[in-house]
Simulated scan of single mutants.
Amino acid sequence: MKKVHSLISIISLSIVLGACGTTTESEKTDQPAPTTETKNSEETVSPTNPEQELLGTTVESENQNYSITVVDNFELTSEEPNKDLIFNQENDLQSMRIETFDSNNETLNDVTQNLVDTLQASNDSGTVVEITDQNLIPTNESIKDAKAFQIDTPSGKVTGYTFVREGLIVKLTVFDTNESPALETFVKMAETIKVK
């Protein structure tokens, strides 16, 4: 009788423990679902956020008629008359030359041809190609007739842009490196160029 009683106790205990284990596994299975939903909702919300204004400092050129927002770790300096340079303080091989022209005195076609010649001069054996990737071209509602070109050089890509904004023709030459490229950062800053 004791053996039967012990056997019944063991079986009952096994059933109870088995049931507890099932509940715990069930709870564990249920737990990841809310986490997944949270991740999904975060991913869904993220792309729909409105485009944020570029964080940085708005700086006016000392010798040209424009201002630009410069992000942290980059600096705007005067290179020579009618030429400024934004360079990466952490890697001075990455820079963007800024030249501006009054559209009453110059044509966009002439400035663009000059840009292509400048790019070609950076690598005689390379080929200048037009850029079509919109992420690599400065755009906003005030920028008109943007043109973008690029050439490979041994030290990295050289990219050039021309566009018109508020009667100002802008010519940009970006010198970038193959490692940790900064082109998209320069493009974002370029989008903020406007007449002062």
Rank of each mutant, 00 (worst) to 15 (best):
F101Q: 03
P32W: 12
D124I: 13
E141R: 13
T177P: 05
T44D: 10
N140R: 10
V116L: 08
Q52G: 09
G126E: 01
D102E: 11
E179M: 05
V71Q: 15
L168D: 08
R165K: 15
T38K: 14
N40Q: 08
G156W: 02
F163S: 09
K171S: 13
T127H: 04
I11F: 15
T24I: 13
D84W: 03
K194L: 08
E79C: 04
V195H: 04
L54Q: 10
Q113V: 02
I86H: 10
N114F: 03
K83R: 13
L54K: 11
S180E: 13
Q89N: 14
T107N: 00
V116G: 05
N88P: 07
K147C: 01
I151N: 06
V59P: 07
L115T: 02
T24K: 11
K2C: 02
Q89L: 12
N49C: 02
V116Q: 13
I86Q: 09
N40H: 06
V158I: 13
Q134G: 02
N88S: 15
S78F: 00
T139S: 13
Q89C: 03
E27D: 09
T100Q: 03
I137P: 00
E25K: 11
E60L: 07
T162A: 04
T22E: 06
E53F: 06
T44L: 13
P138C: 07
L183V: 10
D176L: 06
A148I: 07
L85H: 03
I10R: 12
A182H: 03
E90I: 05
Q150A: 07
T112F: 01
I68M: 10
F87N: 09
E62G: 10
V45K: 14
V174W: 07
S9G: 04
T100H: 04
K28P: 01
G167V: 00
K147F: 06
R165M: 04
E53C: 05
N109C: 00
P81Y: 05
T29L: 11
E166V: 05
D30P: 00
D30F: 06
V170N: 07
F163K: 12
A190F: 05
V170H: 07
P154V: 01
T177Y: 08
S155L: 15
K157R: 07
R97W: 01
I193V: 15
Q94M: 12
N104S: 11
T57F: 04
T57S: 14
V128M: 11
V45L: 14
N49K: 15
E75S: 13
V59N: 03
T185P: 05
G160I: 02
I68R: 09
I143P: 15
T112P: 02
S12Q: 08
F74H: 11
T23H: 00
N63V: 07
N65A: 12
K194I: 01
N82V: 03
Q52C: 01
T35P: 02
S142R: 13
S6F: 08
H5E: 10
Q52E: 11
I98Y: 08
M189R: 12
T23P: 01
S78A: 11
V129C: 00
V59T: 14
L54Y: 09
T173A: 05
S103V: 02
P154F: 03
D72S: 14
C20K: 10
L172V: 06
T173I: 15
